[in-house]
Design a protein around this nucleic acid. Sequence first.
DNA 1: GAATGTGAACTCCTTCACAGCA
DNA 2: TGCTGTGAAGGAGTTCACATTC
Lengths: 223, 223
Amino acid sequence: MVGTLAPRRDIPSATVSRLPVYLRALHEFATRDVTRVSSEELAAQAGVRPTQLRKDLSHLGSHGVRGVGYDVGRLTAELTNALGLNRSWPVAVVGMGNLGRALAAYSGFATEGFHVEALFDHDPSVIGDLVGRHRIASMGELTDVVARLGIAIGVIATPANSAQDVADALVGAGVRAILNFAPVALALPEGVACRSVDLATELHVLAFLRQPERVGADVGRGQ
Amino acid sequence: MVGTLAPRRDIPSATVSRLPVYLRALHEFATRDVTRVSSEELAAQAGVRPTQLRKDLSHLGSHGVRGVGYDVGRLTAELTNALGLNRSWPVAVVGMGNLGRALAAYSGFATEGFHVEALFDHDPSVIGDLVGRHRIASMGELTDVVARLGIAIGVIATPANSAQDVADALVGAGVRAILNFAPVALALPEGVACRSVDLATELHVLAFLRQPERVGADVGRGQ
DNA sequence: GAATGTGAACTCCTTCACAGCA
DNA sequence: TGCTGTGAAGGAGTTCACATTC
């Protein structure tokens, strides 16, 4: 038995991927100086149903008050803690094409302790260039830089054919969380967390949904 | 009973979101001049299990040969057809910040009939600027341009607070498929297909998976 | 009275085991 | 014999209904 201390065991992965959405919805209420919300209000802001929200939150323990609702500040703290967002998460981006440069500068990445701290590319003609505050480093420097800066998350924004090599280099350097934008299935050792974002696939799915035969369909990770 | 002619009814949405991955895996084999693959080989390339692949393909009808495998060319044609990729899909990108510009130029978007044909932004200081081959148009031009170019898919790459207005404008102009990068839940009428890509959420989930208590976990849309 | 928390039902997806066919 | 195709079993996620608590 591993940890009676941790009240956060076995959270379903579907729930985990909605927690950040709830956190953002809470921030929205906080900026409006709302201090208390019902599951109905919070769910509407997050784009889910109230029962879904309550079931999800129940996995973190009871933090609402029956007949009243949730305290915005308290629930925010609870979610922040559950997601591990009360520390810093240094990020490295590998691949300085259009997408990689945009990600390096993307303001949505610079929230909640995530900070892009290192940039890498394979192409000698761009190494040394500045993107935002950072110099593009060579792949040869990756191991040292990752260790020195304590990089926790590696973002792969290379073409498909170099993504596996990059993943291997990141894992070899000690990175154990990867966000992959290359359209390829990465082979990774046990214990390395990976999320893939596949932009072309999203378009393909939309194309399918919009075919004449299936007008009216509304499937997928929609809204 | 609805349509014995169409062999493509009621494909589970989980299957639909894997079909593009299979198609890409098939392209990979085709470039190596492989003409026949087993479900095991194709599944390995796609990063799924063989039984999953076979079950998914079974929703499209039987296109393999027992004891032999699948014909790469034939299955490619079948998937291309099922996904509706044998036509052109004009795309518009709204929001010309870092991410929008990268998406406008992203080569992964320029595959299989998807072509970025129009760019829009709200900010007068960038309207008229060229990004790639295209001039940034104003939001006021959106309705006309969408109609004239027959835009089928709208990509929203604006900040969260303008995303709903943009979505309304796109839908009002006749767009019925939206790819949303803004971190907000869009309210859309029935019949409008939407997929959301939330970059900050992906980082949050990775942070959760990498917390000390849950080393070893390997959840999510991983690999 | 009002809104949360949760067992149970239900739906959807994945995996298994094997029948069916070249 | 070898590999596909698929009914059935198993597992995961969502929704319902309602007991519970302030």
